[in-house]
Computed example of a mutant assay.
Amino acid sequence: MTSVKICGLKDAETVQSILHLPIDHIGFVFAKSKRQVTPQQAGELIRVIRDWKTAGNAAPLTVGVLVNPSREELTAVLKDAPLDVLQLHGHETPEECRWIKTAFPGVQLWRVVSVTQTKQEESQDEAHGLPEAIALQLDPYKDVVDAILLDTFDPVYGGGSGKTFSWETIPPYQAWSRAAGIPLLVAGGLQVDNVGELLDAYEPDGVDVSSSVETEGIKDIAKISSFVERVKHRV
């Protein structure tokens, strides 16, 4: 079953309103963004989720989105926001990732790969990818990350652009992830009208959505429900 991550949550009311849905991950953005939250705010939302789980319900894992965090920043974030997963969008090295896994045992680590080609800017070379180049890029992370997430490159924030990259770039990344035994998730411009096409064509292990389940910049419960329904109950 494809996992679903809803990213960019900011308030307790919205979190409480979607916990009954079969959502696998809820994401909080600590990097510069209009969806940015403080560690203290995220900590309060994590408590809402943990209370739901304590009551005997299935609960999503919590994900913190960061870009090139310092060790001090990571330590401060996890002190107030006990996350299950750290999602790294920057230029974090394998050595830095290894330090995180050692310093925070039990916390999963997702490495984001930014794809530069959008569907409108598709090029033949990038569309088919180069498995050797991908292996060179990702092999050093093989033993230190728990998932790879493909997202459309954004020059300001690194990701979260709401734009779709060329899905024809997925197969070589997917081949690498399957050989490595590491899940591959896809983000970038996903919405209820196109996620079925992605799942039918490429069957990623998970999908990540944020802007398309918003109305005027606010998370929309109906849109979140429709997206989750489309992913979890497709035929």
Rank of each mutant, 00 (worst) to 15 (best):
residue 155 P to H: 02
residue 101 K to P: 11
residue 93 T to G: 09
residue 187 A to K: 08
residue 108 Q to K: 12
residue 133 A to S: 13
residue 19 L to C: 13
residue 92 E to Q: 08
residue 64 G to H: 00
residue 113 V to D: 09
residue 207 V to C: 13
residue 54 T to C: 06
residue 234 R to L: 09
residue 227 F to Q: 12
residue 28 F to P: 10
residue 166 S to L: 09
residue 173 Y to D: 11
residue 83 L to E: 09
residue 125 D to N: 12
residue 34 K to G: 14
residue 120 Q to Y: 12
residue 194 N to D: 14
residue 153 F to I: 01
residue 123 S to M: 10
residue 212 S to V: 08
residue 11 D to H: 13
residue 125 D to A: 10
residue 150 L to P: 15
residue 135 A to H: 15
residue 165 F to Y: 11
residue 157 Y to M: 03
residue 26 I to Y: 01
residue 131 P to T: 06
residue 187 A to M: 07
residue 17 S to R: 12
residue 28 F to C: 01
residue 116 T to C: 05
residue 139 D to K: 10
residue 122 E to W: 07
residue 203 E to S: 13
residue 191 Q to M: 07
residue 68 N to C: 02
residue 125 D to Y: 14
residue 196 G to N: 10
residue 212 S to W: 04
residue 6 I to A: 02
residue 210 S to G: 10
residue 198 L to T: 04
residue 229 E to S: 13
residue 65 V to M: 00
residue 189 G to W: 01
residue 111 R to G: 07
residue 92 E to M: 03
residue 79 K to S: 12
residue 192 V to R: 14
residue 235 V to N: 15
residue 206 G to S: 08
residue 211 S to M: 03
residue 177 S to F: 00
residue 95 E to I: 06
residue 139 D to M: 03
residue 114 S to E: 08
residue 42 A to Y: 08
residue 151 D to K: 03
residue 21 L to I: 11
residue 166 S to M: 05
residue 46 I to R: 00
residue 25 H to W: 14
residue 134 I to H: 08
residue 76 A to K: 03
residue 102 T to C: 07
residue 10 K to N: 04
residue 59 A to C: 04
residue 115 V to G: 02
residue 96 E to N: 04
residue 188 G to A: 01
residue 68 N to E: 10
residue 159 G to T: 04
residue 65 V to C: 00
residue 55 A to H: 06
residue 58 A to E: 15
residue 186 V to K: 08
residue 116 T to I: 11
residue 57 N to H: 14
residue 178 R to S: 12
residue 62 T to Q: 02
residue 184 L to V: 11
residue 5 K to A: 10
residue 33 S to H: 06
residue 86 L to Y: 09
residue 122 E to G: 10
residue 62 T to A: 01
residue 168 E to R: 13
residue 86 L to W: 07
residue 82 P to T: 08
residue 157 Y to S: 09
residue 210 S to P: 04
residue 40 Q to H: 04
residue 11 D to C: 05
residue 113 V to S: 11
residue 32 K to C: 03
residue 129 G to A: 05
residue 102 T to L: 06
residue 190 L to T: 03
residue 4 V to Y: 11
residue 222 A to V: 11
residue 39 P to S: 01
residue 115 V to E: 06
residue 182 I to H: 08
residue 14 T to E: 00
residue 222 A to H: 13
residue 212 S to N: 14
residue 223 K to L: 10
residue 154 D to V: 06
residue 30 F to W: 06
residue 176 W to N: 11
residue 151 D to N: 05
residue 18 I to Q: 01
residue 37 V to Y: 02
residue 159 G to F: 01
residue 44 E to V: 09
residue 201 A to L: 11
residue 177 S to W: 01
residue 165 F to P: 12
residue 87 Q to S: 04
residue 52 W to A: 01
residue 197 E to S: 14
residue 203 E to C: 12
residue 22 P to D: 08
residue 230 R to G: 02
residue 46 I to D: 00
residue 212 S to P: 09
residue 67 V to K: 11
residue 19 L to H: 15
residue 113 V to Y: 05
residue 118 T to V: 03
residue 128 H to G: 07
residue 184 L to N: 10
residue 128 H to F: 13
residue 179 A to D: 15
residue 134 I to A: 03
residue 142 K to T: 05
residue 111 R to H: 13
residue 204 P to T: 03
residue 114 S to W: 03
residue 125 D to C: 07
residue 94 P to Q: 04
residue 83 L to T: 12
residue 55 A to M: 05
residue 104 F to H: 13
residue 149 L to Q: 02
residue 210 S to C: 13
residue 51 D to L: 02
residue 140 P to S: 00
residue 215 T to C: 05
residue 103 A to E: 15
residue 45 L to K: 00
residue 88 L to S: 12
residue 165 F to T: 07
